[in-house]
Structure formats: C-alpha cells, structure tokens
Design a protein around this nucleic acid. Structure first.
Lengths: 261, 261
DNA sequence: TATCATTTGTTCGTATGTATC
DNA sequence: CGATACATACGAACAAATGAT
C-alpha cells in the first residue's frame, strides 16, 4: 500500500542526492565550483546526459547555479536576503508603506477582475467586473532585487473616490489616503504564496533560473469589511524575505466555527 | 549594456513558452491531457529529447504533471488552496494560535543554533548555542496538506522558564503561556520565504514534485525585544496560502534610519 | 589582439525499461 | 498480449561563453 513517492533508483537522482547532501553538509563552500560535467562522468562512470540531468536537479533545487562556459557554482545557503517589511504605519490620517525605488513609469490598463483577484475582492468571475490595473516595477534598495507590483482598483470603487480614477498609478499610500478621505475605515489582510515563475515573469524580475517567486496579495478593506483594493506583489524568494509583525487580536468569546455543512 | 538575461532562442524553450501561454490562457482545461511527446515531435518537427525538455520546463514551472505511461496533464491553475491563518489571538493572559491536526508524536532533540535561526535569535554562530528543537508533523484540516513545524528553544531561555524545558514539545500556545507567566510581554514577527524542497523535505511533506515550499520563521520576542523562540514552518506552496492581518502602527516622528556605517 | 582549451548549452539519434490501457 | 506513453540512459556533434595563453 505504501507507494514509493520518489524514485531514487535513477542514476542521475542518486548522483544528485549525493551531491545535494555534500552541499548541505557544507562539504562545498558557498560559491565554490562543482565538479564539471566531464569530471562527474569520470568519477561516477556515467554519460554526459546523465551528469547533466543530475546537475539540472541541483539547479531546480536551488542549490547550484550554472554559468555558461564557467561551470556550476554552489549558491550561498542563506543567500544575502533583504527583509521586505510588509507593515503599514499611520500618522494621523495618513497611512505609510515602506518605500521602494521605482524603476519604470507605472503602466495603467483596464482589466477584468478574474481568478484570485475576483476571489479576494469577493466578486464573481461571471460578472467580469472592470477595474484599473496599475503596474509598477520597483527595486529593493537593499539587494537591488526587482519587485513587480500591481494594484487592482475596481471601477465601482474608483467611482466612489474619484481621486483614484484620476491617478490610479499613484503610490499606494496616496490611494489609501484617498479611500480614508472618502470616509472608509481601512484594514488590511495579506495572502502569501509562492510558485515557480512563468517565462515572462522571469524576464520581468530578471531571474536567470526557475527559482521560486513569492507572491503576496494585499487586500484593503473598507467600512463593513468591504474589499476595496487588491495589490499583487512578485519578488524573487531567493533574494528577499517578507517580514510581518503579528499583533495579537482579542479572541472572541466563542470561537467562530467555519461552516462546513 | 543591456545583457540578455534569458535566452529564448532555444527550441525547447520556444515550445515551452507556447505551451505555457496556451495553458495560462485557458486553452487547455485543468486536468486535460497535453499532447504526448510523440505528438509534439510531429507538430513542431523536433526530436524526442527536445520535446521532453519542453515538457520538463512546464513541469518545473508547476504547470503540468507527468504520469508514467499515461501522459502529461495540466494542473489546476488556482489549485484548491486553503488559507493558513498566521494570527495570534489573546484572551486575558492566554495566547491562541489556529489549530492544526497533529499527525505524529512530536520529536525533541538537542541542536545548535545555526544559520537563519542564529540570525533571527540574534546569536552568533561561533557561540553555537545549544537549544531544544521540537519537531511536529501536522496536517492542514482544509486540504490535508502536510505541514512540518519546528520550535527552537534556546537553553538559556528554557532555564528561565523551566516549564519550557519540561515539555518543549507542548503546543506553542502553551509555550507562549509559560513565557508570559515568566513575566515576559510577548510580541511576534514572522519572516516568509520560499524555495524548492530538498529531497528529504519532499519526502516529509509528501510532495511528488519539486514545486516550491513556503517557509516561515516566527520569532517570539520578550521584554526589551529580546528574541526568545524561533518557530520554523514548512508547507507546500501549491496547497496552502498564508494569511496575515496587517495592523497599522504609529509612525515614529522621525523615521529611524538603518545604520549602515 | 588572436587563438585555444575548457565548460556549459542545445540538438539530434537511438535504445531499453516500465507503467498504463 | 500489444500499443501507447513516459522514464532512463548512452553516444555524438556543434554552438557559445569564458578564461588563459
């Protein structure tokens, strides 16, 4: 019954495992050169495609990085990551977010609210609500890592706070301010996931490999917990680390039980 | 000056790009079968290794899943992900965390505080401080996804709150309570990153592929912002989504500038 | 500056094994 | 059993980037 989840019989996998263990055990220093494919062929008595497959595994594991004409190098275990604070500050009526360096002019388009955005903004996909989409490309001052940032502003929200429709590409702190001025009491919630980047995402973020990207959706809620905005942020997981401050909340007298009829 | 970051010249990459776009555009339904390698060879006029390389790219992108003897199938775009709330509630002196189902008996070991743990607990690696490590294997009740959870309790912290040393494998809510009883005012901060799992991590979490895992480090700070505990949580990014509530903080009159001399 | 050896990247061909239907 | 499909493995060749001569 117990089905083998992973096949370790394959030669290239055995070689990859051995090398992975050696790397994680610290037998190869960070930045040091892995044996070349030719050397692997000789030491393990395998063919070139097999050696390549083993190194390819290490690459997708994020353990090594291959450079054309030079070799494969061990990536630093705990890479120089910069902390990306996902906090919001408030001074009076003005909300602030950690500053990032803008790299390009923001780009505004009209989109339909679909998929995760529809789910988080609590809209049905069938309605295909229109929205503004403001795309920003920024850099993390710490590491220089690129960050792509998109703000989705549903049209009905924009019509309630016209300042949003005029400058949907403004910094999010301004968008928050406009919503606060429109009488909303703002709260936020953030959803974090990760996945391997698609080719075009790789290009946008300047990634050379298929190492994962962190994706966060920040939803701004207004009065009555109505979702107003949805921001989507992409960043290379290997270079940045998200930081959240967790503030304890008052526990309700009776724990709400998720409906599951 | 503008260096080409990604080569799209490669045939297998071009094929992978086309297929990836078709999949993300919804031309293939979730769960539907991709053209077989033989079909790809014919339609694109390429060899078998090239067709395989293209499909392999799609696999590491997490777009498709290949099954021996059957074919490659499109993975659901927005997989059934469950939300993993990373919140802490408080009722009186008792702190609560969202409940997870324990899958195995916790396992306690003695470890040195190294790497990221040392960094977050603000200890120097050279000191190689001893600590308890309590490993829990749990499941997300929503999706049944496995979650591995490790608590690092430095020995000096344990000696200040002896209850910690007695039952380091207790639920974290109990650990928090013990620290609060020892006179600490607790605050938390969480660091999120992601990476491709190592073979043994794959096995622990029951993953069949190399799709990314989300890693969160939750640090518990006591009085004077002294780091007391470090929790590390691993979960498959494809099946879970972390949820953070963001509470605005009062902005300091003058923004503290990170020292960088 | 030019050449050469080394190393990875890409592509083909071919063969065999093994799971599924 | 046979056909189909993916998995593994070998061999071979050339391209392209790199670093040293």
């Amino acid at each position: 019954m117990a089905r083998e989840i992973i096949r370790h019989n394959a030669i290239y996998m055995q070689v990859a495992d051995q090398l992975a263990q050696a790397i994680t055990a610290g037998e190869y220093e960070a930045g040091s050169k892995l044996p070349s494919e030719t050397e692997l062929m000789e030491t393990y008595g395998i063919s070139r495609p097999t050696a390549r497959a083993a190194v390819s595994e290490l690459r997708t594991m994020g353990l090594v990085e291959s450079r054309h004409g030079r070799g494969s190098f061990v990536r630093p275990q705990s890479a120089p990551t910069s902390a990306l604070a996902r906090t919001i500050t408030r001074s009076g009526k003005r909300y602030g977010v950690p500053e990032l360096e803008a790299k390009e002019q923001p780009c505004v388009t009209r989109v339909h609210v679909l998929g995760t955005h529809a789910e988080l903004l609590q809209r049905r996909e069938e309605d295909a609500d229109d929205a503004f989409s403001a795309d920003h490309l920024m850099t993390d001052p710490g590491t220089g890592a690129r960050i792509s940032h998109r703000v989705i502003i549903p049209l009905d929200v924009a019509s309630e706070a016209p300042a949003l429709a005029e400058t949907p590409d403004a910094p999010v702190a301004d968008l928050y301010a406009h919503l606060a001025e429109a009488g909303h009491t703002l709260t936020w919630q953030e959803y974090v996931t990760a996945r391997t980047p698609l080719p075009d995402e790789r290009e946008v973020l300047g990634l050379t490999d298929a190492s994962p990207i962190l994706i966060t959706y920040r939803v701004t809620y207004g009065t009555g917990d109505r979702p107003l905005l949805c921001e989507e942020l992409h960043t290379a997981a290997a270079r940045s680390r998200l930081v959240y401050r967790i503030t304890p909340e008052k526990a309700p007298a009776k724990r709400p039980r998720p409906a599951k009829s």
